[in-house]
């Protein structure tokens, strides 16, 4: 049991290039998204199950730290989607793209695309954070 755990963790830690970063980011972002999604479903379901709780939860959602966490979450979701598309596309349609050189090239596009697609979230959610979270730009 512990031998297996040790070898799995060692596999995580020993850096083996760009693909390793992509793999780790995919797992971390997937896990973060899963935790977010579970909380998101549970909190939203209070609109029917316990509506008075929802009004309390809304106040928590408007906390600047929660709004900042949401911006980070947006990167995880965007990255998981972009890299996940690469994985699914390669596995279902083009096995050849799994070759080392193609993967290394594709990963640059994945990182850059995920970053660019994240920027609108940084801009708009960041503006909302400063305005309604921190009261700048005439917000309350």
């Amino acid at each position: 049991m512990f031998e297996n755990l040790k070898s799995t963790l060692e596999g995580y830690i020993h850096y083996r290039g760009r693909g390793h970063t992509a793999f780790l980011l995919h797992r971390i972002s997937g896990l973060a998204t899963f935790i977010f999604l579970t909380m998101h479903i549970a909190t939203t379901s209070t609109v029917f199950l316990a509506p008075s709780w929802y009004e309390l939860l809304i106040r928590i959602f408007r906390n600047p730290l929660v709004m900042l966490a949401e911006i980070m979450m947006a990167f995880f979701v965007v990255y998981h989607g972009v890299n996940g598309f690469r994985i699914a596309y390669n596995d279902i349609f083009k096995h050849k793209l799994w070759a080392k050189a193609s993967t290394r090239r594709a990963l640059v596009y994945v990182f850059v695309t995920a970053f660019i697609l994240w920027l609108p979230a940084v801009g708009i959610m960041g503006y909302n954070l400063l305005k309604s979270g921190l009261g700048l730009f005439g917000g309350e």
Binding site: I58, F61, E70, A74, P120, M125, N128
Partner: peptide, 14 residues
Amino acid sequence: ALITGGHNLSLEYI
């Protein structure tokens, strides 16, 4: 998250 914005959520909105 972008058009509505999480800070604008309310029971009425949903």
